[in-house]
Amino acid sequence: MDERDVEGPRVLRYAAFSAVPEGGNPAGVVLDAAGMDDAAMLAVAARVGYSETAFVTPPPEGLAAPEGRGFTLRFFSPVAEVPFCGHATVATAAALAARTGPGELVFATPAGTVPVSVAGTEAGGPRVTLGSVAPHTEDIAGADVAPFLDALGWRPQELDASLPPRIAYAGARHLVLAAATRERLARLSYDFDRLRALMLARDLTTLQLVWRDTRDATVFHVRDPFPVGGVVEDPATGAAAAALGGYLRELGLVPDDARLTLHQGVELGRPSELTVELRQGDTRVYVSGAAVPIG
């Protein structure tokens, strides 16, 4: 669905990482943002009210991309610009494919160059795969983790020791905290202002709260508080999924070739499914999912 906002450009609305519009993470997409300045983009994102809205402008000179399939892409939450957003990238790729057909796309983002592939059409929408920028992780001391746990209302003994806390990056920074049980992950009630302040001090985009399924080590359930974007929780977070894939590979917790399934948004009533793929010899992390118009 697309809509001419009362005081702004045409905004497309897509649900990413879902084959139905009632699931996944909603994103706004402005396919022609040429001439818009930062204030105008932020104002549109605030009116749309989703966790992120993506803005497409012509590509920078020298971007290596198929003819007519390279673009600049920026992302704004209702309160600030973010360096990279996976679900809004997926939504933008689906919106562009609706006009130009499936195939390869290349986005120049503030975090770096992101290649995207749009393959055919699944039930309800195309399958979009993005390749992250090079991921890495940073150690974080236990004393620095403690305030985050306190803001979440989690106790140290409720963490999974096999998945240690780390700051993981694949275009944006996320603190990975692993719950020892599914029940701990399911109970999320936190101090919004305190967690926001802690995250801003560490330049974090979200917390990537995870539980690894004891029945299948390739399946994870995840939740992502996003107070720095003015949002209590994200129902699907592609950037954090990519960061988690890089974290798991760097710590040797999955094989160099791995295909993982992440379930998110269940507690919010917007179930999402994200596929994370690691390829031997390739530094990128690949995140894929469906995307459909909201209408």
Rank of each mutant, 00 (worst) to 15 (best):
G49Q: 07
H87S: 04
A95L: 00
D38P: 04
V56Y: 08
F55D: 02
R74M: 13
A46W: 13
A95W: 01
D38E: 08
V79Y: 03
A93G: 02
P78E: 04
A88P: 01
G68F: 05
C85S: 03
A93L: 00
V90F: 04
V44A: 02
S51M: 13
T100W: 11
M41L: 14
A97S: 08
M36A: 06
T100Q: 14
L63D: 06
A46N: 12
S51Y: 09
T89K: 02
A97D: 03
A45I: 00
A95R: 02
A46K: 14
D38F: 09
F71E: 04
T72V: 08
G86R: 04
A97R: 00
V79W: 06
A97F: 05
G62W: 13
F76P: 00
E52R: 13
D38A: 10
A46C: 14
A40S: 11
A43S: 06
S51C: 11
A93Y: 04
A98N: 01
V79N: 03
S51K: 12
T92Q: 07
V90N: 00
A40N: 11
H87L: 02
P60L: 07
T89Q: 01
V56R: 13
F55C: 14
F75V: 11
E52F: 04
A95Q: 01
L96C: 08
P83C: 04
F71S: 01
A40D: 04
V56H: 11
A64K: 13
V79S: 02
E61L: 12
F75T: 06
A80R: 15
R74F: 05
L73K: 03
T57L: 12
G49F: 11
G49T: 09
R69W: 00
F55V: 14
S51W: 07
H87E: 04
A80W: 01
S77L: 09
T72N: 10
T92D: 00
V56Q: 12
D38S: 14
L63A: 11
A64R: 13
V44W: 07
T57R: 14
G62Y: 13
C85R: 03
T89F: 00
P66I: 15
A46H: 13
T57K: 09
P66L: 15
G62N: 11
S77K: 07
Y50C: 02
P83Q: 11
G62D: 03
R74A: 07
T100G: 06
L73V: 00
F71W: 15
P83K: 15
G49K: 11
R47S: 15
V79G: 01
P58H: 14
E67W: 05
F71I: 04
A88I: 00
Y50Q: 08
D37K: 07
A95G: 12
V44F: 08
A95I: 10
G49Y: 11
A40K: 06
V56N: 12
